[in-house]
């Protein structure tokens, strides 16, 4: 069978960690919360000193939104649902060509949802300043490209240890590649990388709150 489901899964990992975060960051940088002033608050006629409306977001001087509002969360949730629906035909074709069954597709979708959660959280929660955006892009690139590179280096230069096996499972690209094989057991084996991706998303949300 063709590795169609495997390449689809790996491609979507790259989308979740490298491309989609850039889309989200660009959208966040452009978005203005409802009611927030476009101009600096020094133009308020009564000379009020408060320049931060309660509960509203402020904009950095370069226009980077410094907070994620509820509308953004709901909109991106709808968008991810739309991705899942729009990707359905692709998964159907890939599963047919790759000799995969329904449980294979569901397993890949389960793993991918963890990766998308991590990508979403990294992009939307950490990228609240130009420095934060650099951190977000760097984190996505490390997850998507750095971990596979580390796996390759471990495999090439330290094959005796089990480190390369851990790196293979930890790197989303290689993990999804292995999980998208046809006719495996329903639950991912191992399951802990999915938990790691979800934990990464939760950690990014927590760090975002702390900031």
């Amino acid at each position: 069978p063709l590795p169609a489901l495997r390449t689809l899964a790996a491609g979507l990992v790259l989308h979740a960690l490298l491309i989609y975060p850039l889309v989200l960051m660009r959208r966040l940088a452009r978005s203005r919360p409802a009611g927030a002033p476009e101009n600096p608050p020094s133009q308020t006629p009564d000379g009020a000193t408060t320049n931060v409306p309660d509960g509203a977001t402020t904009n950095a001087p370069d226009g980077v939104a410094t907070s994620v509002h509820g509308g953004f969360v709901a909109a991106t949730a709808c968008e991810l649902l739309a991705f899942a629906i729009a990707g359905g035909p692709f998964f159907l074709v890939a599963a047919y060509l790759g000799d995969a069954v329904v449980s294979d597709v569901l397993r890949v979708l389960l793993c991918l949802s963890g990766v998308y959660a991590a990508g979403w959280a990294i992009a939307s929660r950490l990228a609240r300043s130009p420095g934060g955006r650099s951190v977000s892009v760097l984190a996505g690139a490390l997850l998507a490209l750095g971990l596979p590179a580390a796996y390759y280096l471990a495999l090439e230069f330290a094959p005796a240890g089990a480190a390369h096996r851990v790196l293979y499972d930890l790197a989303p690209v290689t993990f999804l590649w292995s999980q998208a094989a046809s006719r495996l057991a329903f639950w991912p084996q191992p399951l802990w990388p999915v938990a790691v991706y979800v934990a990464l998303a939760a950690a990014a949300v927590l760090v975002g709150w702390a900031m």
Binding site: L2, P3, A4, L5, R6, T7, L8, A10, G11, L12, L14, H15, I19, Y20, V23, L24, R27, E79, A82, F83, A86, G87, F90, V93, A94, L97, G98
Partner: peptide, 21 residues
């Protein structure tokens, strides 16, 4: 914008997958 990129990634990765065949 985001949706078009998603479809492009799907199409490209699927094309890579069926390339050998």
């Amino acid at each position: 914008g985001g949706g078009v990129l998603f479809l492009l990634v799907c199409l490209a990765s699927l094309a890579v997958g069926i390339w050998p065949g």
